[in-house]
Deep mutational scan, measured.
Amino acid sequence: KELVLVLYDYQEKSPREVTVKKGDILTLLNSTNKDWWKVEVDDSQGFIPAAYLKKL
């Protein structure tokens, strides 16, 4: 599985998104959309702007 590093805090703005903190390491589930990547946070899944993430 691929991991990503969160570069900036992000507060979810819709139920399909997730809240993350700078420095979090998350599992990347889908990066086919260049603007929004799907990640797994704890036991939930959701989208975060790709610009907030860096592949490890």
Rank of each mutant, 00 (worst) to 15 (best):
S44M: 14
L29Q: 03
D43Q: 13
L7A: 03
K34V: 10
N33I: 05
L29W: 04
V39Q: 01
G23N: 05
P49T: 03
N30W: 07
G46I: 15
K1M: 10
S31C: 13
R16C: 15
L29M: 06
N30T: 07
E12P: 15
I48T: 03
L56C: 12
D42R: 14
E12H: 14
K54I: 12
S14F: 09
S44L: 14
V39M: 01
K13P: 05
V39K: 00
K55M: 09
E40A: 13
Y8M: 13
Y8K: 14
S31V: 06
E17R: 10
T19V: 06
G46W: 14
T19R: 08
T27C: 10
W36P: 00
W37A: 02
Y10C: 05
D35R: 14
T32M: 10
Q45T: 13
K38V: 14
Y10N: 01
T32C: 14
V41M: 10
K55H: 07
P49N: 04
K13D: 06
D42E: 13
V39D: 00
Y10G: 01
K22A: 13
S14G: 13
D35V: 14
I25H: 03
G23T: 02
L26G: 08
A50Q: 05
R16Y: 13
T27L: 13
T19Q: 06
D9A: 06
E2C: 15
Y10K: 01
V6F: 01
T32Y: 09
L56K: 02
V39T: 01
L3E: 06
A50E: 03
D42T: 08
G46D: 03
I25A: 02
E17C: 09
D35M: 14
E40L: 12
S31Q: 08
L29K: 04
E2L: 12
F47S: 03
E2H: 11
K1C: 14
V4F: 03
D9N: 08
V39A: 01
Y10W: 08
L5H: 03
N33D: 14
L7K: 05
A51S: 14
Y10Q: 01
A50G: 04
L26I: 12
Y8V: 09
G23H: 04
Y52P: 00
N30R: 06
A51I: 13
K13R: 13
V6N: 00
A51H: 12
Q11M: 12
R16F: 14
N30L: 09
L56S: 02
K22R: 12
K21D: 02
L56R: 02
L5N: 00
L3D: 02
V41H: 10
P15S: 11
K34C: 11
G46K: 08
K38M: 15
S44C: 12
S31G: 10
L26W: 05
Y8I: 08
E2Q: 14
Q11V: 14
K55A: 06
K38F: 15
Y8C: 15
D9H: 05
L3V: 07
Y52H: 08
L3K: 12
S14E: 08
D35A: 12
V41L: 12
Y8F: 13
K21I: 05
P49K: 05
Y52T: 05
L29A: 03
N33Y: 07
V4K: 01
R16M: 12
W36M: 06
D42K: 14
L53Y: 01
K13C: 11
S31A: 12
T19G: 05
L28P: 00
K22V: 06
F47H: 05
T32I: 08
K1D: 08
V4L: 03
K22H: 06
P49V: 04
D35W: 15
T32L: 08
N33Q: 09
V18S: 04
K55E: 05
V39C: 06
Q45W: 15
Q45E: 13
L28C: 07
S31L: 04
A51N: 12
V39L: 03
R16D: 11
P15W: 08
I48P: 02
Q11F: 14
T27Q: 09
W37K: 00
L56N: 01
S14K: 07
I48V: 15
Y10E: 01
N33G: 08
W36Q: 03
K34P: 14
E12A: 15
A51V: 12
D35C: 15
G46M: 15
A51R: 15
G46C: 15
S31N: 07
E40R: 12
V4Y: 05
D9C: 05
L26Y: 05
L7Y: 02
L29I: 13
G23A: 02
L26D: 00
P49G: 03
V41W: 08
E17Y: 08
Q45K: 09
T32W: 09
W37Q: 00
Y8N: 09
W37G: 00
S44T: 14
D43I: 07
Q11Y: 14
L3Y: 15
I48Q: 01
S31E: 11
D24L: 09
D43V: 07
K55C: 10
V20W: 05
L7E: 01
L53D: 01
P15F: 07
T32E: 14
R16L: 13
P15A: 12
K54N: 05
L7T: 04
K1P: 12
D35E: 12
L5F: 07
V18W: 14
P49Y: 05
Y52I: 14
L53G: 04
K38D: 02
D35Q: 12
S44W: 15
I48H: 01
A50W: 04
L28I: 04
Y52S: 05
K55T: 06
L26C: 12
W36T: 03
I25Y: 04
L5T: 04
K38G: 05
W36R: 04
K13A: 10
A51C: 15
E2G: 11
Y8L: 09
Y52D: 00
L28W: 02
K22Q: 10
D35T: 14
T19N: 08
V41C: 10
G46Q: 10
D42S: 11
L56Q: 04
L5M: 10
A50D: 01
W37N: 00
A50S: 13
W36F: 07
W36E: 04
L7C: 07
K38C: 14
T27Y: 11
F47N: 03
D24N: 08
V4T: 02
Y10M: 02
P15M: 08
L7H: 01
V41E: 02
A50T: 05
V41S: 13
S44H: 15
G23I: 02
K21G: 04
T27D: 03
G46F: 15
A51L: 10
I48K: 01
V6I: 04
D24R: 11
K21R: 13
D43H: 12
N30S: 13
T32R: 11
S31K: 06
K22S: 07
P15D: 11
I25T: 05
L56M: 09
F47G: 02
N33M: 08
E2N: 11
L7G: 00
Q11R: 11
D9T: 06
V18Y: 07
V6K: 01
S44N: 13
Q11G: 07
I48W: 02
L26P: 00
L26H: 05
F47V: 06
D9L: 03
D24V: 07
S14L: 08
K54V: 12
T32H: 10
L28S: 00
L7F: 02
W36N: 02
L5G: 01
L29F: 04
L29R: 03
N30M: 08
A51F: 12
G23W: 06
V6S: 02
P49D: 03
V6D: 00
I48S: 02
I25Q: 03
N33S: 09
K34A: 13
L29G: 01
D9R: 04
S31R: 07
N30C: 13
A51Q: 11
V41Q: 07
D42Q: 13
N30G: 06
L53A: 09
P49L: 06
T32F: 10
P49I: 05
T27P: 09
T19D: 05
L53Q: 00
T27M: 10
Y10L: 02
V39F: 03
K38R: 10
G23K: 01
G23P: 01
E17W: 07
W37E: 00
S14M: 07
D35K: 14
